Simulated scan of single mutants.
Amino acid sequence: MKLSRTAILAASAAMAALTLGSPASAAPASITGAWKTDDGKSVIQFYKCGQSMCGKISQFLVPEPAGGARDTENPDKAKRDRKLLGMRIFWNLSADGSRFEGKGYSPEDGRYFDAEVWRDGSELKVKGCVLVFCRTAKFTKA
């Protein structure tokens, strides 16, 4: 059976669309910008840093103690006097499929964790895992 040139072109275009349009090859939606945490206490600014993304505490939405909030729960005693405002708490977030994966730090309990961050409509979802224990938070645009 002989295929027409039009049929060959149509088949080639369909294969290209399937290959190029697959979700696995799509870059994740942008996470850049200011996002309010699910507890309403702070705003995290996600930004490009080198070849990856980072996130820092850019604003507190609750009153800070006199002298500013400090990293009092840090497991490293030498770091417990660091100010939280401006502190980078997400780093090395690299695109992996539809999400960004990297590292994070929670100043509330002094834990470092594996982080996944992705857009879900108008929300930003942040999943943090320590060993096999995970928690997902929903941030909203600030």
Rank of each mutant, 00 (worst) to 15 (best):
I57G: 04
Q51I: 02
L84P: 02
F46W: 03
F139G: 05
S22Y: 13
F139C: 06
D96W: 09
I8G: 06
P23Q: 08
A95C: 05
T37L: 00
K138A: 10
A137C: 09
T37I: 01
S98P: 05
C129S: 15
A95E: 00
L9I: 02
P75G: 13
W118E: 03
D96V: 12
C54P: 02
D38E: 06
G67Y: 02
S22H: 11
F60D: 06
G110P: 00
K2N: 14
R82Q: 14
C54L: 04
R88D: 13
R135E: 12
F90E: 00
A69S: 13
K2I: 10
A95S: 06
F100S: 05
R135S: 12
L84I: 09
V126Y: 09
R80A: 12
P63C: 04
T32H: 11
V132G: 08
K125Q: 15
K48A: 15
E123C: 03
C129P: 06
T136F: 02
Y105W: 05
A24K: 12
Q45P: 10
R80Q: 15
G50Y: 03
A78Q: 08
M1L: 14
S52P: 08
G67W: 09
D71E: 07
K79F: 08
A69L: 13
C49H: 11
G110F: 00
A17V: 08
A29L: 13
D81Q: 13
L61Q: 00
V132P: 05
R80I: 02
D71N: 08
I89T: 07
A7R: 00
N74W: 01
A10H: 01
D38Q: 07
T6E: 15
I57T: 03
S52G: 12
C129A: 15
P65D: 05
A34P: 03
P23N: 05
N92E: 14
W35P: 00
S12V: 01
D120F: 10
L18C: 15
K56V: 06
M87A: 13
S94E: 14
A137N: 09
A27Q: 02
R5S: 15
F133S: 01
Q45M: 04
T37F: 09
D96E: 11
I8S: 07
A10P: 02
V62S: 05
P28E: 07
G50V: 01
K138R: 09
D109W: 05
C134N: 06
M1N: 13
C134Y: 04
L84K: 01
V130L: 14
G97P: 04
E73A: 13
D114E: 11
A24T: 02
